[in-house]
Design a protein around this nucleic acid. Structure first.
Lengths: 211, 211
DNA sequence: CAAGCGCTAGACGGATCGGTCTATGATGCT
DNA sequence: AGCATCATAGACCGATCCGTCTAGCGCTTG
């Protein structure tokens, strides 16, 4: 249950992608997406050069521009929509399995903390990093982040409504969860210390419980 | 009452700096700090080139390396410590003026929202942007952000203790406020919509009130 | 005045950036 | 076999990156 980050960015030995995408995605394309996502979520869009992405994924430049004619920007866009898709899928799974929101929040907090520690606080949220760099702008990347957050919020809100929360309140709670969780990940990363994540998780649980 | 952002980045007509620093800071140095802070908090460290900073501040390259021998990195470090200092000063002022935390949180939320809108959601939190880019790393910039967050958190906690909150709880609340507020600013910026800020403010107030 | 210093001014350079281009390897179809 | 298509491979390019360096301005000081 990891939201906002990609955990499959192993280098040269791409872990098996989720079944749905393994069927359709070209191996080179997948490798590029995994490595690029990993690097972008560590350092941001502008801080990572194509040279590094190509070297770590052992891919020649020609292949990149074959699979992503739009170059670096299209690659980053694809990374964002891929993270967005996997996050929504995770939310749907959790919702379908009948878990309640409180359990979900606690699991999210625990696994986020574990992930941060496991990466030595190097990896953050791709959406947050790119979002910070592009803010309220109007480029393709800013749009991709905007849409990703919107869709994730909608899934979360839908789930909350399934649990009986009123429509307007569900959307509010969803947005609050996303904002607080992203902020907690950031602060935890900067401080190399997970307490912001657990504190925020507790606060979010309290908010949801009070309705 | 703005935390985490610089509002004085006017170009070529530097608004009067706070009295304390106007006395000591060389005009050119101040202009560089203002313009650089503004640009960094809009787009991040790596996305902003020296050329743009120099052009907007109408400063030749020689001046930059005279005032900041360490180049771009030292300039960014100075921007971070300057934001950190002004944020701590604002917290001290608010605390000394006898306001309570709830009033502070509401004012912070309202003014942050107004600021986001006024900049057309272009400007974000400098600490957050640079923090995202450098994560838990160990460069001078990562350290500067880490220290800045730590100091701000301590000031906030101190204020909370003045209001009777227990030591440990005060530090927890402070960290939670910072994390949630940063996350709210990010999400609001990405969505070009301030509701995450007001929602988060409400949640934080509820948390503080329950103690 | 001459010397020294703080600061401005911008030319210059090596490195790296993202992107284009041509050539070639691999695969499948007829 | 011959052809077409997908994909790899990397040389190459102009632009931009950050940083160094020398020259000179203006002010104070001896």
């Amino acid at each position: 249950m990891m939201l906002f980050v990609s955990t499959d960015g192993a280098v040269r030995t791409p872990s098996a992608a989720s079944a749905s995408e393994a069927a359709a995605i070209h191996p080179t394309r997948l490798r590029l997406l995994q490595v690029a996502t990993r690097l972008f979520q560590q350092r941001g869009y502008h801080a990572v050069g194509l040279a590094e992405i190509l070297a770590l994924s052992e891919t020649p430049k020609g292949s990149l521009y074959h699979h992503f004619p739009g170059g670096k920007q299209e690659l980053a866009e694809a990374c964002i929509t891929r993270i967005s898709a996997s996050t929504m899928a995770a939310l749907d799974d959790a919702s379908a399995s009948g878990a309640d929101i409180i359990a979900f929040l606690q699991k999210l907090g625990a696994e986020s903390a574990a992930w941060l520690e496991r990466t030595d606080w190097r990896d953050g949220s791709l959406l947050a990093v790119v979002g910070q760099e592009h803010g309220g702008g109007d480029g393709p990347l800013a749009d991709a982040v905007r849409i990703a957050y919107q869709r994730i919020e909608m899934r979360l809100a839908k789930w909350l409504m399934l649990e009986g929360v009123a429509v307007a309140r569900a959307r509010d709670i969803a947005a609050t969860i996303i904002a607080a969780h992203e902020g907690a990940m950031l602060l935890a990363r900067c401080r190399r210390d997970n307490t912001p994540v657990s504190l925020t998780t507790a606060m979010l649980c309290a908010m949801v419980e009070r309705g």
